[in-house]
Simulated scan of single mutants.
Amino acid sequence: MIHETFVASDPKSAYIQAVEKYGNKIELVSAKQLKYDDGQLRCEIQVAIPEAVYIQKTMGDDTPYEKSEEALLIEEIEALKSQLSQMKETLQHDIIDNDTVISEVKALLKRKGIAEAWLDGMINGLAGSPIAEDNRLLVSYLLEEMDEALKEKPEDLSRQKVMMFVGPTGTGKTTTIAKLAARYAYLMDRPYSVALINLDSYKVGAIEQLEHYADIMQIDHVAVENVHGFKDALDHLDSYDIILVDTAGMSPYDTQKLIRTVEYVNSDALKDLEVNLVLPATVKYEDMEDIFTNFSFLNLDSVIITKFDETKHLGTLLNFMLAYDLPMSYFSIGQEVPDDLRVASKEYLLERFIGDIDAG
């Protein structure tokens, strides 16, 4: 990917410039506001452009290019490697498909949401081994591999921190924040001083909802509308152990709101910021991928998984966690505040998944 910077009076205009030049395949990397020498504020955004798109747009399709003999030889070698790899993969698939135990276990786990590519990567080489001769033994082996691959983010309250929560509309961000606030303030080995900041000026009732929770728990709550207000709020709350920041729920395709969130994340007033993606267990895999891709430029530290109570089928979620290198921090398992919240545990996730397998 090639990075390029665009400048305009506001983030949306800068992003439109980038799209007009390179199309919709670009990815937003960062956005910030700067005061130029003429005293005017302008927005700079940086986008990542696929190399092929960049070359096409800057050099044109008909640019003459003569490859060297060395380049042609390298291409031939790579093509040969690709053919050999395909032959090997075909042979492995034939062996696996003709192995009854392996094919049955693969079919079951695929039905439960685990990707065939991940299963093949784990199973290749097992054909003919004792593990592949017993269904339960093979399933146990794959569950151990899942346990090894999943990542947890330990709960660490040893230092002051600012925790920001991002994600699409309707994921349960505000309720999760209320649960965490109650946990930190009242349910730990010692009470922590907790404050809430609300950046969500879009959703009707969003400020009132968080303020209601804050009043019940007797926790300070500040609503802000811009980056300057955010900095002032952080300065005002500097003595607190933990500051929880609620952001606007948004579509992962809403460029304007995403850029505005970037401005908050890049604020020079922030010290130790943790950005947590709030993701429902009920979302289909393709949407999980889009959510992660479009929020990942916020430098995500962990994922908080909500709505465990609304599904019995966790294979899609498990498959997502296996595919992306992002640790889990908390699970929201119901609507009750603060009871239905637990520190993320891969054992809990796998136990729920095993229950689904047994049902299948």
Rank of each mutant, 00 (worst) to 15 (best):
H3M: 07
F6G: 07
A8I: 06
S9K: 14
S9R: 14
D10P: 00
P11C: 10
K12R: 14
S13K: 15
Y15D: 02
I16P: 01
G23Y: 01
N24L: 05
K25P: 00
E27Y: 13
S30T: 14
S30C: 03
L34E: 15
E44W: 14
Q46P: 01
V53R: 14
V53F: 10
Q56I: 00
G60R: 04
G60T: 09
T63G: 00
E66T: 13
S68E: 05
E69T: 11
E69C: 02
E70Q: 13
E70R: 14
I77D: 02
E78F: 08
K81A: 00
S82K: 11
Q83V: 11
L84I: 13
Q86P: 01
E89S: 13
Q92M: 10
T100N: 13
V101L: 03
S103T: 12
K112A: 04
A117D: 14
D120Q: 07
N124D: 12
P130C: 09
E133V: 01
E133T: 08
N135A: 05
L137R: 15
L138G: 08
Y141S: 08
Y141L: 03
L142Q: 08
E148P: 00
A149I: 00
A149R: 10
K151S: 10
E152L: 05
K153S: 12
P154Y: 11
L157H: 13
Q160F: 02
K161N: 05
M164N: 11
M164T: 07
V166A: 09
P168T: 14
P168E: 14
T169E: 07
T171L: 02
T171M: 05
K173Q: 04
A178G: 12
A178E: 06
K179I: 03
L180F: 12
A181Q: 06
S193K: 14
S193T: 13
L196N: 07
N198K: 03
Y202E: 07
I207R: 09
I207W: 04
E208D: 15
E208R: 01
H212E: 11
A214M: 02
I216S: 01
M217I: 06
M217P: 02
D220Q: 15
V222R: 10
V224S: 03
E225P: 00
H228I: 08
F230M: 06
F230Y: 15
L234C: 06
L234Q: 08
L234W: 02
D235L: 09
D235V: 07
D238Y: 13
D241Y: 01
T247P: 06
M250S: 15
Y253W: 00
D254Q: 02
T255P: 02
K257V: 15
V262P: 00
N276P: 00
L277W: 09
P280Q: 07
T282I: 06
V283W: 01
K284P: 02
M288V: 03
N299M: 08
I305T: 15
T306R: 08
K307L: 07
F308A: 02
D309W: 05
T316E: 12
N319C: 04
L322I: 12
A323H: 13
A323R: 14
Y324T: 12
L326E: 04
S329N: 09
S329V: 05
Q335H: 10
E336D: 12
L341P: 04
V343N: 03
Y348M: 08
L349P: 02
L349C: 03
L349G: 09
F353E: 06
A359F: 08
G360Q: 04
